[in-house]
């Protein structure tokens, strides 16, 4: 074996080791995060914790209002973001002409995904809270989060639709179906798993956001559960922030318990969605 080859092999081994170590480092960090949240959060878990409002200046009791608030806010987000996002995805995949304008729309969508969440918060404050006079409310928060989630849903929808072979569309058109009927009866049902999964991933992320709802929906402390969309709400991420930074004598159990519920909920949603999609994919292959 020549010297060059021996050396090349050595560098090859070294390179794999170093890059592998980097990947292992990131994976370890992720697993550490998960483990840490679990270990510190589990002691707080109890029926009372998820079914009772906070007590004793939020240092005891449960987090029910925050759970309900987060659910309400996320459902509201879905209600606004899904129709618009799915429609926009359909437009891009099925109707949009190839051209300059479509290119600009695509750029706008990916740019939207990079707008800082606090900027969405400011936007929501200016438009929904102040101009539309919705006040700090579920409605204003959900609309704000919907804007933030929109690019995720659009992209997921478009990608899912693109994976449907054009053969199917042609078959439907050749049977005398209109374009819309083709989309509605053939293309959309076939793409549904991808759309649903992508949307859930986007909504899960929205559920964990704090900055956009700081001035649009979240409230520091409120015993009663929300009764209308014009109520402000306690939400899990904001509750964590408040407990960790504003409450004297940090109630560690409650903080980590809240974090576990939030991370658990977000992850469970994502995992269930992803698993469901891969099951559907196995059933249907093109």
């Amino acid at each position: 074996m020549s010297r060059r080859i021996r050396q090349a092999r050595l560098t090859q081994t070294l390179a794999v080791a170093i890059t592998g170590a980097a990947a292992a480092f990131i994976v370890t960090a992720a697993l550490f995060l998960l483990g840490y949240i679990l270990v510190r959060g589990l002691p707080a878990m109890s029926w009372e914790f998820i079914s009772q409002p906070p007590r004793g200046q939020m240092k005891a009791g449960g987090i029910l209002p925050s759970i309900i608030g987060t659910l309400a806010l996320t459902s509201g987000t879905a209600a606004f973001a899904l129709p618009v996002g799915v429609a926009a995805g359909i437009y891009l995949s099925e109707y949009a002409p190839r051209g300059r304008m479509t290119r600009i729309i695509r750029l706008a969508i990916s740019n939207m995904a990079g707008v800082p969440s606090i900027v969405y918060g400011l936007f929501g404050l200016a438009l929904f809270v102040i101009l539309f006079s919705f006040g700090t409310s579920i409605l204003a928060g959900a609309l704000t989060l919907a804007c933030l989630t929109l690019p995720v849903i659009i992209t997921a929808t478009e990608e899912a639709l693109r994976q449907i072979p054009s053969d199917l569309r042609q078959a439907s058109l050749a049977l005398g179906a209109t374009r819309w009927r083709t989309i509605y009866r053939v293309v959309l049902p076939a793409a549904a798993p991808g759309i649903v999964t992508g949307s859930i991933l986007g909504l899960a992320r929205a559920a964990g956001e704090t900055a956009p709802i700081l001035f649009t929906a979240a409230v520091y402390y409120k015993r009663q559960l929300p009764t209308s969309i014009f109520d402000d709400v306690m939400v899990l991420p904001y509750h964590i922030y408040i407990l960790a930074t504003q409450v004297t004598g940090r109630p560690d159990d409650i903080i980590w318990g809240t974090a576990l519920i939030l991370v658990g909920g977000v992850t469970a949603g994502s995992v269930i969605a992803a698993t469901w999609r891969s099951l559907q994919r196995k059933k249907v292959r093109w």
């Binding site: 053969d167 078959a171 049977l175 005398g176 179906a177």
Partner: peptide
């Protein structure tokens, strides 16, 4: 669209819709 109800087409690769046999035939 109406023309295509009178002139059907069968494609190169079989392209049934992802639904039941019955629904495929009943689609038109």
């Amino acid at each position: 669209v109406e023309l295509r109800t009178r002139v059907g087409q069968v494609f190169q690769k079989p392209n049934p819709f992802p639904m039941t046999i019955y629904d495929n035939v009943a689609y038109g």
